[in-house]
Design a protein around this nucleic acid. Structure first.
Lengths: 210, 210
DNA sequence: AAATTTTTTAATCATTTGTTTAATTTTTTT
DNA sequence: AAAAAAATTAAACAAATGATTAAAAAATTT
């Protein structure tokens, strides 16, 4: 076990690569910058990881894996209701993103740059398609009068409301004067609000179907 | 007046630059690629626009200006109610984005890369702060029991639900099998749904305040 | 038609950037 | 301690890239 001051060279490079790639994106990230941040000689990057591309692949895969681990654990839990799962999901992701606010733009950029990446190397389809969750949603939807095709809309709404503020952060900052500290408060408020809005949208189907 | 086949060299460069910058982003866009798409000699790009940076600045400013023209026109219209404005806004932007789906990621990337750009060169603050709109929202919020601080949340929700699907398009495509044609249908459905969800969220404040 | 200006082109420059090489230092094994 | 292996470094390479230059071609003005 190593202390945080005595990371191995490999670990220093990975930590620096994670920081730089997530902040700048693949194209704008430069190997010399990563080497500087890691405090190592440039050649060591290729010595340990062969190429920028290969190093990047490791970083984005680890980042995506962490996010999907959370997702998978929550939707596959047989103990929680659908609204519980939404609340857990929103809370988990907002807690993560508050301390790593650059992750959404990073992921979205790289998935757009290479869409096959997601489905090929990670086997997301298998991981997302949980029998339990599909079944649970069907029951929930039926009980609330929600048409099957609306699953994707409601899912997109929830993810949108959770993730989009991090993409729009500079706009909120410059146009609405929401500085870093205010932004954290703003996001913390949404941990409560978003699950409520989810409920409100769901309830609306019972009252008057769209 | 020139026909579309006989654009001036300047116009050909701008059209190509718009296409390439929006598709690739500033860093990944290469001047030689822009020149190729425009069908002109590379040196002409610098002859007419001095530098890649200056050309880019023109493109992003024009793109932002178009989007804000729409926004300004809608919120400053004294004839329409708040729900009307939401509906008009959602419809206008979804219609635009269906034919130019790469714009959201382009804007978000470049605003994140240089946040000052938005507030400095465009004077967005002045344009957004409409006395009429602020007044109208105050009345609307009071009538529906919406706390003042929730304005920003509800605005962010509406924009999130409208814009985010275009950022997540490859995920929807690869993970949920929503191909190009399906995506257009999906977005068209949301032209109706999002204003309804806005109403639903607003209504929820009357019934039981958060 | 001649002169002048504008536009276009091919070639080149200077810098950046990902990667490699060969030598040196450090660590591990014998 | 000697030998072998692993890690590190400085230097350099090759390709890509934004920009410039000087000459040629085209258009405009005189």
């Amino acid at each position: 076990m190593q202390s945080s001051e005595t990371l191995s060279t490999q670990e220093k490079i990975k930590a620096a690569a994670r920081e730089v790639f997530i902040k700048k994106g693949y194209v704008a990230a430069k190997t010399r910058h990563i080497a500087d941040v890691a405090g190592i000689n440039l050649a060591l990057l290729n010595y340990y990881f062969r190429s920028k591309e290969k190093l990047f692949h490791i970083i984005i895969m680890e980042t995506l894996a962490e996010l999907f681990d959370t997702f998978e654990a929550i939707i596959k839990n047989p103990e929680t209701s659908i609204p519980d799962k939404v609340r857990l999901m929103v809370t988990a992701y907002l807690d993560t993103l508050v301390v790593q606010p650059d992750i959404p733009l990073f992921i979205i950029n790289e998935v757009n740059r290479n869409p096959k990446l997601v489905i090929q190397d990670l086997k997301i389809n298998e991981r997302i398609q949980s029998e339990h969750f599909i079944q649970q949603w069907s029951v929930f939807a039926a009980k609330n009068g929600i048409p099957t095709q609306h699953f994707i809309h409601i899912l997109v709404n929830t993810v949108s409301m959770t993730v989009f503020p991090f993409l729009a952060k500079p706009v909120l900052s410059e146009v609405f004067g929401i500085k870093d500290r205010d932004f954290v408060d703003f996001v913390i408020q949404r941990k409560q609000f978003i699950p409520t809005w989810f409920d409100v949208i769901v309830q609306s189907y019972k009252q008057k179907p769209l």
